[in-house]
């Protein structure tokens, strides 16, 4: 499989809107969790805030009356608030977009469902041939990661891709291991 195929299969990401009520599509090719409109809003807020602060500074420096200077100080506060709101919205929008994408990734992973709901078994009972195959697998090909306390079926997600050792049930139980609660190799062996 090439990287081009993987990239082409990527779904369109959904990013939170500025108000948090609507969502906007972030292009799949985007390398940042922001839209151009977010960057524009940040730029406008900070430039406006900076202009207000600089203008107020010039205004304060142009007069020697304290009462007039305090009028300019209010402009400074407004400028600083505008800049802060723009920067805060930028960071919060990025955080929200990253969180939404992480949630989408987790939802698209079957392993997440297995890990979150290991005890719920909503599957239909497998055919007799599959049960027999599982029983043979459970008795012959039980796997365990060395140094761990559970043994698993060969296809269990918890040992997939890991370096495992294969032993039968008595061998695992002699080593002090118990059956995995996710793939339940003991039930397959019992069947």
């Amino acid at each position: 499989m090439t990287a081009v195929q993987v990239t082409a299969a990527r779904p369109v990401r959904r990013a939170a809107g500025s108000t948090g009520r609507e969502s906007r599509a972030v292009p799949a090719s985007s390398s940042v969790p922001w839209l151009p409109s977010d960057a524009l809003r940040l730029l406008v807020c900070n430039v406006l805030g900076l202009l207000l602060v600089v203008g107020a500074w010039l205004g304060v420096g142009s007069t020697a009356q304290v009462t007039a200077q305090f009028g300019w100080l209010s402009l400074v506060v407004i400028g600083f608030l505008i800049s802060s709101v723009g920067s805060g919205a930028w960071v919060l929008t990025g955080r929200r977009t990253v969180g939404l994408r992480l949630a989408e990734l987790l939802e698209s992973t079957p392993l997440t469902e297995q890990l979150l709901h290991p005890a719920v078994d909503t599957h239909e009972p497998p055919p007799a041939a599959v049960v027999a195959e599982d029983a043979r697998t459970a008795s012959d090909l039980l796997s365990a990661v060395p140094g761990t306390a559970r043994y698993h079926r060969a296809g269990c997600a918890l040992v997939r891709g890991k370096s495992v050792e294969h032993t039968d049930v008595p061998g695992h139980e002699t080593s002090g291991r118990r059956p995995c609660e996710l793939c339940r190799p003991d039930e397959g062996a019992a069947a």
Partner: peptide
């Protein structure tokens, strides 16, 4: 106020860099 403004911009850029890193990891 100018110093606080610059500190705020620096903090915002630092948080943006962290978010960009998280985006690359995703």
């Amino acid at each position: 106020v100018g110093g606080l403004f610059l500190l705020g911009v620096g903090a915002m850029m630092w948080l943006s860099a962290d978010l960009r890193d998280e985006w690359r990891k995703l």
